[in-house]
Simulated assay, not measured.
Amino acid sequence: MSDWEVHAVKYADRNARTRADSFIFDDNHDAPHAMDYYMWLLRNGDRVILVDTGYDEDEASSRGRPIRLNPVEALAPLGLTPENVTEVIVTHLHYDHAGGLALFPSAHLHLQAAELAFATGPCMCHDTLRMPFTAGHVCEAIKRLYQGKLTFHDGDAEIADGVTVHCIGGHSRGLQAVRIRTQAGWMVLASDAAHFYENLWLRKPFPIVVDLENMLTGFDRLETLATRRELIVPGHDPIVRRAFAQGASDHIFRLDTGPIAEINL
């Protein structure tokens, strides 16, 4: 029944964005709006679970979206090598969350069945829906399936004592959030169920969306899962770096102790 450590690991950022890239409804649509890219590391004693994998230099080059740190390098200050990562919760298969799967070849994956079905089904005939996916990353997940190193989940599931996953959908068909028992209370890694605090707190949907109703009801679900709203950690918000304490390096932030500053939108 011990609590988990939770670390946010920032490996990339993108500043050449506007609020129109982050919110469907926004009066100030042409104002700058930066985005951070994170992985998350859960640790309890000897057990380590990586949530998402970031993406590597090849993907960065092909998409014209540079990374600051290779995911393996980004995890090194936490004392981890690829061989140490034996479990990965894949929140969804978009390139920036599953683009580093091949970097952790020993890892057993946890994935919603609906996500792999979506990423390999008829919806991928549409360029707009296919855009956030990369075929090689999806094939890597399929490879793990055939290696016996992938567990499918259908909705809510327990990964470990104090770690559960919950299918939210909306942004991608099988997007799952992760709920963790911490010293600060039940924390929720929203991943892209809420890219920014503003998506969640002001109920402003993100523009890349498969099911808008699921995205909006997902905001409500996130709030029921967390002990309090401040313990819901969005997937891409630079505010996370101001709200939580710096961890083992200047790109790592300790989440499980709770926010150290007021979260102001």
Rank of each mutant, 00 (worst) to 15 (best):
P77Q: 12
A135K: 14
E198M: 07
E87Y: 05
F118N: 01
W201V: 02
T134S: 03
M124I: 13
E87V: 03
A119W: 15
E87M: 02
P132K: 05
A74F: 04
A119I: 10
F196A: 01
T86P: 03
H108E: 06
L145G: 09
P205C: 08
E140N: 09
L175W: 08
A177I: 00
V138I: 10
C139R: 11
A102S: 14
S172W: 11
I142Y: 04
P122W: 06
A141N: 03
V165M: 00
T151G: 06
G136V: 10
T151A: 13
K143H: 15
Y95H: 13
F206Q: 02
L75C: 04
T164S: 14
R130Q: 11
D96M: 08
F196H: 03
E73Y: 02
A114C: 10
G100A: 04
G136M: 08
R144V: 03
R130K: 11
R179G: 02
H126N: 15
W201P: 01
G170F: 12
H195Y: 14
H108R: 14
G174S: 02
F104C: 00
T120A: 00
G148K: 14
A74C: 05
G174V: 03
T164F: 06
A194D: 03
A102D: 12
V178Q: 01
Q147P: 05
E115G: 01
A160Y: 15
L103A: 11
L80S: 07
T151L: 09
T91H: 06
E87P: 05
G148S: 09
G148L: 07
G162V: 14
E115T: 02
Y197N: 00
I168V: 13
A114P: 13
A160H: 13
L175N: 07
P132H: 04
G148T: 07
V88H: 06
P82E: 08
G162H: 08
E87S: 07
E73T: 06
Q147I: 13
E198K: 09
G99M: 04
F206E: 01
G136L: 12
H97L: 11
Q147T: 13
I168R: 01
A102H: 15
T128D: 13
R144P: 09
A157K: 02
E198F: 07
